[in-house]
Amino acid sequence: MITLGVEDVQASVWFYQALGFPKTDFDSDDVAFFSLNGTWLGLYGREDLAEDAGVPSDGGRFSGVTLAHNVESDALVDETLQQAVDAGAKLVKPGQKVFWGGYSGYFADPDGYLWEVAHNPFTWIGPKDED
């Protein structure tokens, strides 16, 4: 499970739902969960999460963590980045060919968490198109 400490749980719920993440039926204003393929994404207030972990909440620097979403094509990278921007994300790096032979870009969610959207043509491990 991935848990993000966010400034406004309900605003973040709206953002991730706008990206199409499937929210679970768990009912709370203080925490939310999204069911993902093989894991969950949890959203919890930044202050509350820091308190729970016993660490200071002043996360004003890059944590050294990014999240990644792998998609099936270069075009889908661009579409997904635009979908995130339309939902309120900040485009950090537009989709582009990368040194390892794939295609990727980055956006920051409303709390500044960096998400890479990538297509790796060598090891696509997602749902297969059933055309």
Rank of each mutant, 00 (worst) to 15 (best):
A32M: 05
F33H: 08
F33G: 05
F34Y: 12
F34Q: 06
F34S: 04
S35L: 06
S35C: 01
L36V: 02
L36M: 11
L36W: 13
L36H: 07
N37R: 12
N37E: 13
N37M: 03
G38K: 06
T39M: 02
T39R: 04
T39I: 00
T39S: 12
W40L: 02
W40E: 09
W40V: 04
L41N: 06
L41S: 07
L41C: 04
G42I: 01
G42M: 04
L43V: 05
L43N: 10
Y44C: 08
Y44D: 14
Y44F: 13
Y44N: 14
G45P: 04
G45Y: 00
G45D: 15
G45R: 01
R46P: 06
R46M: 02
R46C: 03
E47G: 00
E47H: 04
E47Q: 13
D48L: 03
D48W: 00
D48F: 00
D48I: 00
D48E: 15
L49C: 07
L49H: 09
A50T: 02
A50E: 07
A50F: 02
E51V: 01
D52F: 11
D52E: 14
D52T: 01
A53W: 13
A53E: 05
A53D: 01
G54P: 00
G54F: 11
G54A: 09
V55C: 07
V55F: 07
V55K: 10
P56I: 01
P56V: 03
S57K: 11
S57W: 03
S57G: 11
D58H: 13
D58A: 09
G60L: 00
G60K: 05
R61T: 11
R61D: 09
F62E: 15
F62S: 07
S63P: 07
S63F: 05
G64T: 11
G64F: 14
G64P: 05
G64A: 06
V65I: 15
T66Y: 03
T66H: 04
T66M: 12
T66L: 08
T66P: 00
L67E: 02
A68D: 04
A68W: 01
A68R: 03
H69V: 08
H69I: 06
H69K: 04
H69Q: 15
H69M: 13
N70V: 11
N70G: 08
V71Y: 14
V71L: 09
V71I: 11
V71M: 12
V71C: 14
V71F: 15
E72M: 08
S73P: 04
S73T: 15
D74C: 11
D74Y: 09
D74T: 09
A75F: 08
A75P: 00
L76W: 13
L76C: 05
L76H: 13
V77A: 14
V77R: 04
V77I: 12
V77K: 06
D78Q: 10
E79Q: 15
T80H: 06
T80W: 10
T80K: 09
T80L: 09
L81S: 08
L81T: 06
L81C: 10
Q82K: 15
Q82M: 13
Q83L: 15
Q83D: 13
Q83E: 13
Q83S: 12
A84G: 15
A84S: 08
A84P: 14
A84D: 10
A84V: 12
V85S: 11
V85Y: 12
V85R: 07
V85T: 14
V85E: 14
V85L: 12
D86C: 03
D86N: 14
D86K: 09
A87V: 10
A87T: 11
G88C: 06
A89M: 08
A89L: 03
